[in-house]
Design a protein around this nucleic acid. Structure first.
Length: 390
DNA sequence: CCGGGAATAT
DNA sequence: TATATTCCCG
C-alpha cells in the first residue's frame, strides 16, 4: 500500500512536471515561431512534443511519437525521453577536431575560457531547472538570430544587472557550464541553411560543423566561413566593452575580444564588427532632414559611443564614474537600436579610395578613459584619432 | 603578430 | 544594400 501511495504521489508529481513542461514548451514554440521558415522542423518537433505531453497527461499513454526513442525511462521517466528530442545530442569533442586543422590555423589560442564543450551527458537538462534552459537558449541566441526576438525581453527582465553575461562569460560558470555559441560553422558549399544537419545541430547547442571539404577537391582552402550574425546580445556586449575601452576608436580588436570573453569569437570577427561600427559612427548626421544634431535625437553620444537616449544616464554614469570593475553594470535596454543609426546611413564611402582621406565629422565628447592602465597608448591613439578628424 | 582598411562574398 | 569574411599592407 505504501507503495501504491508513493506511486500515486509519484504520478502526480510527474503529472505536474509535465504540465510545467507543456507550458514551457509552448513558450518555446512561440519563440520558435518567429523562425518558422528557418526552423520548420524545430517547430514541428516542439509542437509534437507538446501534443505528446498532453496526451500523456490525459491518460492515453501513447508515447513513441516518433517511433524512435521510445519511452526509455531514464531516471526521470518519459518526460525525459521526450525532452531528449529537443536536446540535440551533443556529441562532445568529436566535432571540433574535425575541421580544426585548417580553418583555424592559429586562433583558439584563447588561454582562458575557450570552448570547453563540456562532456556529453544529456541528462544535464535537469528538470526543475528551466532557468538553465533559458540560459542555454540565450547563449545560443547570442550568435544567430539576425533579427530581434521578443522573447529576449522577457528573459532579460529576470536577471538584469548583467548576471547573465557573467554566467555566459564562463569565468565563473560554476552553476552550469553552458557553452557559448560556437560560431564556427564553416562549410561554404552546400550551405543552405535548410539542410537538416544545420537546423537540428544549429538550433541546439550548435557546434561546429565537421564536414566540409569533402572529397578533397576542396579547391584549396578558399572556403569562406559561413556568415554569422551578431546578435543583439553579442552586440550589446560589444558595446559595453567598447565603453570600457574608451570608444570605438581607441579600442583594439584584441582587447575587445578579450574583454568580451565570448568563446569562439575571433579577432577577425571583432575587427570586422568594429570596422563596421566605426563606419557607422563616422557620418552620423545628414540622415534626418529636420533635426540637425538637436536634442530631439534619440541617440546621444557618450564618450564617443552612441547609445539610446534612454540609457544615456546610466551609460554616462559609467563613463564618468567607470572604473571597469563593475564590468557589466549598465546593460542598455534590450531595445533594438544600439547602432549609431539603426538602418542605413547613406554613406557614400565609395569615393574615398585613398586611405586617410575621410573627413568625417565626428562628435566625441571626451572619451571615458581615464584610469586605465594601458591608457598611454590609448591616449596617444586617441589623440592621433582626433588629429585625424579635426 | 596585430591593427586598419579595402576587396570580396553572401 | 547591409553586413560578414578575407586579403593586403604597414
Amino acid at each position: 500500500m505504501i507503495k501504491n501511495i508513493s506511486n500515486m504521489k509519484n504520478y502526480n508529481e510527474k503529472r505536474g512536471r509535465c504540465c510545467e513542461y507543456i507550458e514551457a514548451l509552448e513558450e518555446e514554440r512561440r519563440k520558435i515561431n518567429v523562425f518558422q521558415r528557418e526552423l520548420p522542423l524545430c517547430l514541428e518537433l516542439v509542437t509534437q512534443a507538446i501534443e505528446a505531453y498532453k496526451k500523456e497527461i490525459s491518460g492515453t499513454t501513447m508515447e513513441n511519437v516518433y517511433g524512435q526513442s521510445e519511452c526509455s525511462e531514464q531516471t526521470t521517466g518519459e518526460c525525459g525521453a521526450i525532452l531528449d528530442l529537443f536536446v540535440p545530442i551533443k556529441h562532445s569533442p568529436t566535432s571540433i577536431e574535425g575541421e580544426e586543422e585548417e580553418v583555424d590555423e592559429h586562433d583558439d589560442d584563447d588561454d582562458d575560457d575557450d570552448d570547453d564543450e563540456h562532456e556529453s551527458h544529456e541528462t544535464d537538462i535537469d528538470f526543475d531547472d528551466k532557468n538553465m534552459k533559458s540560459e542555454w537558449l540565450k547563449s545560443v541566441q547570442l550568435w544567430n538570430q539576425p533579427d530581434a526576438v521578443p522573447s529576449k525581453k522577457l528573459e532579460r527582465s529576470q536577471q538584469e544587472s548583467g548576471t547573465v553575461v557573467e554566467a555566459i562569460k564562463g569565468n565563473d560558470n560554476r552553476a552550469a557550464s553552458h557553452r557559448l555559441p560556437c560560431y564556427k560553422t564553416s562549410n561554404g558549399e552546400n550551405d543552405d541553411t535548410k539542410s537538416l544537419a544545420t537546423i537540428s545541430g544549429g538550433s541546439g547547442p550548435q557546434k561546429k560543423e565537421a564536414e566540409k571539404n569533402i572529397g578533397g577537391s576542396s579547391s584549396g582552402r578558399g572556403r569562406r566561413k559561413q556568415r554569422r550574425c551578431w546578435s543583439q546580445e553579442l552586440h550589446k556586449r560589444f558595446l559595453n566593452v567598447l565603453k570600457q575601452l574608451g570608444g570605438p576608436h581607441v579600442a583594439t580588436p584584441k582587447q575587445i575580444r578579450e574583454l568580451m570573453k565570448v568563446d569562439g569569437l575571433t579577432n577577425d570577427e571583432v575587427k570586422s564588427h568594429l570596422q563596421k561600427y566605426r563606419l557607422h559612427t563616422k557620418r552620423p548626421s545628414q540622415t534626418i532632414s529636420n533635426n540637425i544634431n538637436s536634442q530631439t535625437q534619440h541617440f546621444v553620444v557618450v564618450g564617443g559611443i552612441w547609445v539610446p537616449q534612454a540609457s544615456h544616464s546610466t551609460a554616462n554614469a559609467v563613463a564618468s564614474g567607470e572604473t571597469s570593475t563593475g564590468i557589466y553594470g549598465p546593460m542598455v535596454s534590450a531595445l533594438p537600436s544600439e547602432w549609431p543609426s539603426h538602418s542605413n546611413f547613406c554613406r557614400t564611402i565609395s569615393e574615398e579610395r585613398s586611405r586617410c582621406s575621410n573627413k568625417g565629422i565626428l562628435r566625441c565628447s571626451s572619451p571615458a578613459m581615464s584610469s586605465s592602465t594601458r591608457t598611454k597608448t590609448k591616449y596617444a591613439k586617441y589623440h592621433n584619432f582626433c588629429k585625424k578628424y579635426y
